[in-house]
Amino acid sequence: MLDVERAGELFEAFGPVRCRPMFGGTGVYARDVMFALEVRDVLYLKTDASTQAAFQAEGCGPFSYDTARGQRTIASYWRAPDRLLDDPEEFAVWARRALAVALSRKQQAPRKQSKKT
């Protein structure tokens, strides 16, 4: 599982991150948004239509897991290419793209309206 020390090493060229346990794995946050997910020692980065082709070209696929009703796929997180884990500078480039996607999605999300009493 991704812990603070390992995350610090992995994301050193990217910058500071926070890790939170979730989904039996770890959510990775920067600037108050989750942009990466680690599950079963596999790292996934946030994607959108503009970044998925790069993941496909590397032979990577989206995050998926098994449920009682079959397999469920989360198309917005794709497996990070293994080669990036040995190249901190290029990994940081991919991580920055994932963060940009996450920030963009956060800005597009509809805001909850407060209830007036």
Rank of each mutant, 00 (worst) to 15 (best):
F35L: 01
S50M: 08
A102V: 05
L2W: 07
A98D: 02
G27P: 00
L103F: 05
R83A: 15
F11A: 03
F23N: 11
C19L: 11
G15D: 09
L10M: 14
A95W: 06
Y29F: 14
S114I: 12
R83Q: 12
P16M: 05
P21G: 12
C60A: 14
E12M: 05
G59D: 11
S50I: 03
T47Q: 06
E12P: 02
A49C: 04
A100T: 10
A100E: 13
T51E: 03
A49H: 08
L2C: 03
F14T: 01
Q71L: 11
V42C: 09
F63C: 04
A54T: 10
T51M: 02
T26V: 15
F63L: 15
T117A: 15
S104Y: 07
Q108Y: 03
A13Q: 11
K112N: 08
A7K: 01
T67D: 05
T47R: 02
V39I: 11
V39T: 05
Y44L: 02
F55R: 02
G61S: 14
R111M: 09
A98W: 02
F14L: 02
A80G: 06
Y65A: 05
L2E: 05
R20T: 12
R31N: 10
F14G: 01
P88E: 10
Y77H: 07
L43C: 05
R40G: 07
K112G: 11
L10Y: 04
R83N: 08
Q108T: 06
R97I: 03
P21E: 14
V93T: 13
L2V: 09
V33G: 03
S104C: 09
D48Q: 01
A95H: 07
A109E: 14
Y29T: 01
V4F: 06
E38C: 07
A54N: 11
A92T: 12
G24F: 07
D82A: 15
Y77G: 00
D3V: 05
V93L: 13
A92W: 06
I74F: 13
T51V: 01
E9R: 15
E89K: 15
P81R: 09
R105L: 15
Q107V: 12
L45S: 01
W94N: 08
R97T: 09
G25C: 04
V17E: 04
V101W: 00
E89A: 15
F35C: 01
A7Y: 04
G61K: 12
L85I: 10
A30P: 05
L37I: 03
